[in-house]
Write a protein that binds this DNA or RNA. Structure first.
Length: 486
RNA sequence: GGCGUCAUGGCCGAGUGGCUAGGCUGGGCUCUGCAAAAGCUCCUACAGCGGUUCGAAUCCGCUUGACGCCUCCA
C-alpha cells in the first residue's frame, strides 16, 4: 500500500498515515444538531468525510466510521434552554418529534448527494448513562466540580498538568485576560470552564435524573463518550468542521484525557467552510442555501436548478481544507465541466483496443493516486480525470490508441475514481424510457442523414434544431452521428 | 482587543524554490454543407513594498485587504 499523507490539525503538518491497527481505520466525525434543516455548508463537511471514507475503502481498509446525531444539549444564546427544546416549543412538538423530523431530513439529503451511511450513528440521548459515568470519572479524578446541581470541567486545574489549547493553539492565559471583564451570574469558577452537566430549569423539556439532580448533559461530552465507546480510548481520525475546533474539539480532548489519561485522537482533520457572498454559511445568521433550493432552483442566489451530482462535483473541485465560495457562476462552470466528464465516460465502453498504446496509463494512474495520497487532493484528481477525458475523445476520433490491457486498466481507474471515490452519479444516463426514446432519436437521425445526402439542408437543420430545443444534442462524427440527452 | 487562516490570470480553483495545473469564459485554426461536438492553439497571474537566493507565486519581514475562531454553529 502506498503512503497516504494526511494534514493533522494537531501538529499543523502533513503526516504519513499509520493506523493504530494495520488495515483498520477508526474514524469519528461530529454530526449535525438536528433542530433544523441541513444547509449546503453542513453538507460540505459530511461530503468531504464521505470522500475520505470512500478512499480508505477503495484502498482496502476496514473502516469503522462513527458519526453522531446531536439530539440534546446545545444551548441557545440566552443560555437557558437548548436549541431542540426551543424549537419544540416554537413548533409545538415533542423534542423527539423535532429530532425525528430533522434526522429524517438529514438522511434524505445526504442520500441525494450519494453519501454512504456511517457504520454507527449514535445519538446523544441514547448515551446519557455513559455521559453520567464519564462525569463521575472526571469528578473522581479531581478535574471537575459541582455547583448548584451543575457540574463544570475545571480547565485551570486541568491545564496544570495537561495542555488545554493543544489543538486550537490558544494559550489559556490569553483567554483569561480577555474574558476577565465579563463576569456574570455564572456558577463557574472561571469563565473558560465548560459544563459537563447542567441543572434543568423547571420549564426545560429535555431532562434526565443524575447524581446531581435533574438536568441534561453538557454539549461537548457526547462526542467524547460515544467515540470512546465505539472506537476505543485511542482512535485514528477525528473530523469535523473548522468551526468546531474550538471550543468543541479542544474540550473533547480535555474530557478524554481527564477520563482515560491518553490523547484520544491520532489525526485531527478539519474541513473548511463553505461561504456564500464571502461569508460563512450558518443556520443562525440565515446566510445559507438549502439542498432542496439547489435542486429546485428556488433561491435568489442561483439562476437555475442544479443536480446533486453537479453540486458534489463543484465541492470536489476545491480542496477540503480551503474555503469555498458558493456562487451561481461557479456552479454553472462546474455543471459544464461535469457534463463533459460524463459524456466522455459514456464513450468509454465503445472504445476499441489497438495493437499499441499512445498514452502511458500506468504513469497517469499513479498521478491519480499521488493526488489522493497527498491529503485527499481531489482538485488534482479531477484535473487528471480531465486528462482522461481528452484521451477518451481522441480515441473516439481514432487519433489515439490503447492496447486492450491498457484500455481495461484505464477504464477501471476512471470508473473507480469517478464513481467509487468522488461518488459522482452519471445523470446523463437515461431513465426507464431510454430505449424507446433512443429508438425515436435514431429514426430522426436516419431521416436527417437522408436529407443531408439529398442536400436538403432546410430539413436536416430543422430536425437538428428542434431536437436541441428538446434538450437532445446531435454530435456528428467520423463514425456517424451520436447524441446526448440532457 | 486576543488567536489564526488566506490574498493566484475575465470567473472558479490547484500548486510549500527552477519544469503546462485543471475547469468555465473569450480569440484563432482543423474537421463540417453550415453549425454543434471534438481536437490543436493563443491571451490576460501570482495584493503592495522590501529582503534571502544563481533563481520565489512558493522562504522571511512590513503594509493593505478579506475571512474564521474567541457564544451555538459542519
Amino acid at each position: 500500500m502506498q503512503n497516504l499523507n494526511i494534514y493533522n490539525s494537531l501538529t499543523n503538518k502533513k503526516e504519513i498515515f499509520n493506523p493504530l491497527k494495520d488495515g483498520y481505520v477508526g474514524m469519528y466525525v461530529c454530526g449535525p444538531t438536528v433542530y433544523s434543516n441541513v444547509h449546503l455548508g453542513n453538507v460540505r463537511t459530511f461530503m468531504s468525510f464521505d470522500m475520505i471514507y470512500r478512499y480508505f475503502l477503495h484502498l482496502g481498509y476496514k473502516v469503522r466510521y462513527v458519526r453522531n446525531i446531536t439530539d440534546a444539549g446545545h444551548l441557545t444564546d440566552d443560555n437557558s434552554e437548548d436549541k431542540i427544546s426551543t424549537k419544540a416549543r416554537l413548533e409545538q412538538l415533542e423534542p423527539m418529534e423535532i429530532v425525528q423530523k430533522y434526522t429524517v431530513d438529514f438522511h434524505q439529503i445526504l442520500k441525494k448527494f450519494n453519501l454512504l451511511p456511517p457504520s454507527i450513528e449514535p445519538t446523544a440521548t441514547g448515551h446519557i448513562l455513559e455521559q453520567i459515568q464519564a462525569i463521575e470519572t472526571i469528578l473522581k479524578n479531581g478535574l471537575a466540580y459541582e455547583v448548584n446541581g451543575s457540574v463544570y470541567f475545571d480547565v485551570l486545574k486541568y491545564n496544570e498538568t495537561e495542555n488545554y489549547g493543544i489543538l486550537s493553539k490558544r494559550k489559556i492565559e490569553d483567554a483569561i485576560e480577555n474574558t476577565r471583564v465579563l463576569d456574570g451570574q455564572s456558577d463557574k469558577k472561571n469563565a473558560q470552564d465548560f459544563a459537563l452537566w447542567k441543572k434543568a430549569d423547571p420549564e426545560h423539556i429535555q431532562r434526565w435524573d443524575s447524581p446531581w439532580g435533574i438536568g441534561f448533559p453538557g454539549w461537548h461530552l457526547e462526542c467524547t463518550v460515544m467515540s470512546t465507546k465505539y472506537l476505543g480510548e485511542e482512535f485514528d481520525i477525528h473530523g469535523g468542521g473548522m468551526d468546531l475546533k474550538f471550543p468543541h474539539h479542544e474540550c473533547e480532548i480535555a474530557q478524554a484525557q481527564a477520563c482515560n489519561h491518553v490523547a484520544p485522537v491520532k489525526y485531527w482533520m478539519h474541513c473548511n467552510m463553505l461561504t456564500m457572498n464571502g461569508k460563512k454559511m450558518s443556520k443562525s445568521t440565515g446566510n445559507n442555501i438549502l439542498p432542496e433550493e439547489i435542486f429546485s432552483g428556488e433561491n435568489k442566489n442561483i439562476s437555475k436548478s442544479y443536480s446533486a451530482s453537479v453540486a458534489r462535483f463543484f465541492m470536489m473541485q476545491a480542496h477540503y481544507r480551503s474555503i469555498l465560495d458558493f456562487s451561481d457562476e461557479a456552479l454553472l462552470a462546474s455543471e459544464k465541466g461535469f457534463n463533459r466528464l460524463m459524456e466522455a465516460i459514456n464513450l468509454l465502453d465503445s472504445l476499441k483496443a489497438s495493437a499499441t498504446s499512445t498514452f502511458d496509463v500506468k504513469v497517469w494512474k499513479q498521478k491519480c493516486y499521488d493526488a489522493m495520497n497527498d491529503d485527499f487532493n481531489t482538485p488534482i484528481l479531477i484535473a487528471n480525470l480531465f486528462e482522461a477525458v481528452k484521451i477518451i475523445n481522441l480515441m473516439h476520433d481514432n487519433k489515439s490508441t490503447l492496447t486492450s490491457e491498457d484500455l481495461e486498466e484505464f477504464k477501471k481507474v476512471v470508473f473507480a475514481f469517478t464513481f467509487d471515490v468522488l461518488a459522482l452519479e452519471n445523470t446523463t444516463v437515461d431513465n426507464d424510457n431510454s430505449d424507446k426514446l433512443k429508438g425515436v432519436v435514431e429514426i430522426l437521425i436516419g431521416l436527417r442523414n437522408q436529407a443531408r445526402e439529398n442536400k436538403d439542408w432546410a430539413l436536416s437543420d430543422k430536425i437538428r434544431d428542434e431536437l436541441i430545443e428538446l434538450g437532445i444534442q446531435l454530435k456528428d462524427g467520423k463514425e456517424g452521428t451520436g447524441f446526448i440527452i440532457n
